[in-house]
Design a protein around this nucleic acid. Structure first.
Lengths: 340, 340
DNA sequence: CTGAAAGCGCTTACAG
DNA sequence: CTGAAAGCGCTTACAG
């Protein structure tokens, strides 16, 4: 069925020279005469020869492919991240193989094995919210396949990491609400164990503390990263005897749910309740009112993680130490938190 | 750096038997004694042996990988489609390699070459809105690499196709608006040359005709598939002397733009203007008011396209004829088009 | 039942 | 400057 591609052997046969010479001519080796080179290259071009990457892979024990695991590609944050990953990967001659964990450790583990079995050269991962155990990645590293973590990181894995300064982003968002005059600021946090969740919670608490506002246990709720989660938690918050005058959502999905719930309940933003989230700007600008957000340099995050990974792949030896890059977030104030 | 994986050679050496025997034992060949099989398999397991897929690829001239090109993975329609593609691919032992064309023919062509060069076994594509020329895919087919088209299809490529019944979806949406009492129904269509655009436009026109409503040129505008496009066209429509009382958007992004513009302009949905679109449900339900939509079975579309592709890949000979599967869309009425 | 040999497409010491 | 040979990890006719 599959038409055989042109091979070096074929070119050698047509030109009546050896495979070795063809190979060398194609790689522009200095040991080959200009004349021979020209004949080989001309024929190769007219035959649309392209080297078989499979053969090269077998030879070099390199596939020129990196694996990528994210929780969910439909999430704009991750799809933008993937854009950054592909940008760097392609420009450095690598392909990507993308997997989704759907926030399940089990799927992350099976994706990892799948990927390893395919002999990728390295792996870039935003771990699932269930992942506390890094054994599957450690196993990979032991096989000499480097892993770089981004977005969600965990101390238990020794490697390069790229993340956003959640603490600072969260601190700034909270402080902004305080400066707008909010006093009863609720925080709908992400899943409990995730590092990001803790950092954001800390930023929130510290901003309150700085401005002498007492931290209230009942104003912090944990939620999965879904719209429904945000909606339900908002109902819960607004039902409190002492209801909040601001809600700070820890993710875009959660914050969309907050926005929706508040409209349903008849509250005006920002006057009744000010809202801010860690959001995707494209989306939040479309809402009415547009949602203020801590935006993250997702594309750049993908780029940096990938370039760190490729450096690991291409360097001969293990680096002396691993690096954690912390990228700044950006506070974009829109109507949902801007009091007149 | 990279730790060598366990090979058949290694197992053969340890067991002091030949590579051939190991290979056969591992594939559970009937010519090998049970005893030898057991020894080989036990050792292979304890060594975590897994066959090198690269070597197999070279041997079989098969990569067990399919290429996927979509306009944009951040678009929920396509990310859901990818879910369906991966579902079938993985379950049948294939991997996927995903590329984005970003609606540019040039990037589609380069992705195609990239993919071909990587010797994928087949390709599943939703073509870019610029793609009128199918030469790059025809080239692939001539090399014996099958291509299956989904979502956006073109007659010029002879192959299996999977698409949604746009005509019917569009007809039903328009008829629904008419039954709600709308008389001046505008349609913001997609890019001109795309087959989907034409089908949807036809459905719209025919529904008007069926109900004796005269078609008005000025109420049909073409737009790129973006929110901005929808917003601008809405401004244009509402500025007309004879303004529409309903707007039917040809895509989710466009319809989000319509929704946003109408709110900005102070119109009430559905009373001033009823709105319906070809939408992603998750998103449109979150809007206020929630947007009625023609929903498409995106996951299933990915599944079907992939299973058709794998059939082509795995069958020895070219099929007698190619199949075009037309999946039904589904009309979901929400508040944006439901008059009291 | 088991092994030696050839070959998938390529590169690269080693000779000449 | 060019070629023959070995080898990457595997499978599979061909012998025995």
């Amino acid at each position: 069925m599959r038409k055989a591609s042109v091979t070096i052997k074929e070119i050698a046969r047509l030109l009546e020279i050896s495979k070795s010479t063809v190979s060398r001519a194609l790689r522009d080796s200095s040991e080959i005469s200009e004349e021979t080179k020209k004949r080989v290259i001309d024929l190769a071009e007219s035959l649309h020869y392209s080297p078989n990457p499979i053969a090269l892979s077998l030879l070099k024990n390199r596939t020129q492919t990196i694996g990528v695991i994210v929780p969910d590609i439909a999430n704009r944050f991750y799809s933008s991240t993937i854009g950054g990953i592909e940008d760097i990967a392609y420009s450095r001659g690598y392909h990507t193989m993308i997997y989704q964990s759907h926030e399940l450790l089990e799927r992350e583990v099976s994706a990892t094995r799948h990927i390893a079995q395919r002999r990728v050269d390295g792996l870039v991962v935003a771990i699932s919210s269930e992942s506390e155990n890094m054994d599957h990645f450690i196993e990979l590293q032991e096989q000499g396949i480097p892993v770089v973590l981004f977005d969600r990181v965990l101390d238990t894995l020794q490697t390069h990491k790229v993340r956003v300064d959640d603490y600072k982003g969260s601190f700034e968002a909270t402080e902004h609400l305080i400066l707008q005059g909010c006093q009863r600021i609720a925080h709908i946090a992400g899943p409990k164990r995730v590092s990001i969740t803790r950092n954001r919670l800390d930023g929130y608490k510290d901003a309150l503390a700085k401005h002498g506002i007492e931290f209230q246990e009942e104003w912090v709720l944990h939620s999965p990263i879904t719209q429904e989660g945000g909606t339900e938690r908002t109902y819960q918050l607004m039902a409190l005897r002492n209801r909040p005058d601001a809600i700070f959502g820890a993710s875009d999905r959660i914050t969309m749910g907050v926005h929706w719930a508040l409209r349903q309940l008849g509250y005006k933003m920002p006057d009744d309740v000010a809202v801010i989230g860690f959001c995707d700007l494209g989306m939040s600008s479309l809402m009415d009112p547009p949602i203020s957000s801590v935006t993250q340099p997702s594309f750049e995050m993908g780029q940096q993680a990938t370039s760190l990974l490729l450096d690991l792949i291409e360097s001969k030896n293990t680096p002396a130490s691993y690096e954690t890059r912390v990228l700044p977030s950006n506070l974009v104030i829109q109507k949902s938190s801007l009091k007149a």
